[in-house]
């Protein structure tokens, strides 16, 4: 059976760096997968490659099937028909992800109209208000006229989720959606995101380095290390069958009552002689 998303032998390089070293991975409809790994392990590259949004100089080989059909990354028009309307994307930087000279309403209506080319402006505005309501932005109608700098970081991140959902995609790729936010805001944004995804029965790829978040939201977890997929298991099995690297990741997390202690680094936690998979 083929999944909603099938990544086959994906390999991505930037100049001399190979960021993704032959990854194969399937995600089934309604599955919520967490992708974890330290900075530079290739998580963002994996998400962007799927959407065909890597910079022009990136080398990319392998194949990604969405709903059984191969994605043609160099065909911009074809990809524009997939992005937003079939696969949504949430960027990690709520500051930079909005054009500072356009209103929030413009961002949302443009996203809507890209996914619904024939729709009217009024439909787009209505959808924008509904989506903002959904992510719990109060007074949505008047806030559409505001500019990004008039929104707080947490609000912007919720708007970004709203914008990613406005095209009614079947899969959401969220790249560290809460990393730039403070802890309280993080929790609120995650809850909102979780609620809408659950309500729609959507697939989710949640890129994060926070295993706690994965445990709360995801059904599966995939662990990346230096461009390779080293483990992919149901989330409740992560402790039982942990790969040495995953174990190190787990131990490197702060725990309650750990006061005045230094957190160990991944390198210290890895077993002697362990270098590659």
């Amino acid at each position: 059976m083929s999944g909603l998303l099938d990544i086959k032998n994906l390999e991505v390089g930037f100049g001399a760096v190979t960021a993704i070293k032959g990854i194969s991975l399937s995600l089934y409809r309604g599955t919520r997968m967490g992708i974890v790994g330290e900075s530079g392990s290739g998580k963002s590259t994996l998400g962007l490659a799927t959407l065909g949004l890597l910079p022009d100089f990136a080398r990319c080989s392998g194949e990604v099937l969405f709903d059984g059909t191969a994605l043609h990354w160099d065909n911009d028009m074809a990809m524009a028909g997939v992005r937003g309307s079939r696969i949504g994307f949430v960027h990690q930087d709520p500051m930079g992800a909005f054009s500072p000279v356009h209103t929030i309403g413009t961002h949302l209506t443009r996203a809507y109209l890209s996914a619904h080319p024939g729709a009217s402006k009024a439909d787009a505005t209505k959808a924008a208000v509904d989506r903002l309501d959904e992510v719990e932005i109060t007074d949505a109608k008047s806030r559409l006229r505001h500019y990004p700098h008039e929104y707080s970081g947490g609000m912007r991140q919720r708007v970004m989720i709203a914008a990613a959902l406005i095209g009614n995609p079947e899969l959401l790729i969220a790249d560290e959606p809460t990393t730039a936010l403070d802890v309280t805001t993080q929790a609120a944004v995650l809850r909102v995101m979780n609620d809408v995804i659950e309500a729609r029965g959507m697939g989710l790829i949640l890129i994060t380095h926070d295993l706690g978040v994965v445990a709360e939201i995801c059904s599966e977890v995939a662990v990346m290390y230096h461009g390779e997929l080293i483990q992919h298991v149901p989330v409740d099995q992560i402790h039982e069958k942990a790969h040495p690297y995953t174990e190190a990741l787990l131990k490197a997390r702060p725990r309650p009552g750990m006061r005045g202690e230094r957190l160990p680094t991944i390198a210290e936690l890895l077993p002697e002689g362990w270098s590659d998979v």
Partner: peptide, 26 residues
Amino acid sequence: GAPFALVARAHGQSRLRVMVATLLPN
């Protein structure tokens, strides 16, 4: 190179449209 250029494309806007409608005003 700004994130909003990437995000506009992720919303399903074509390269050319992003260039004219998002990048140019910026």
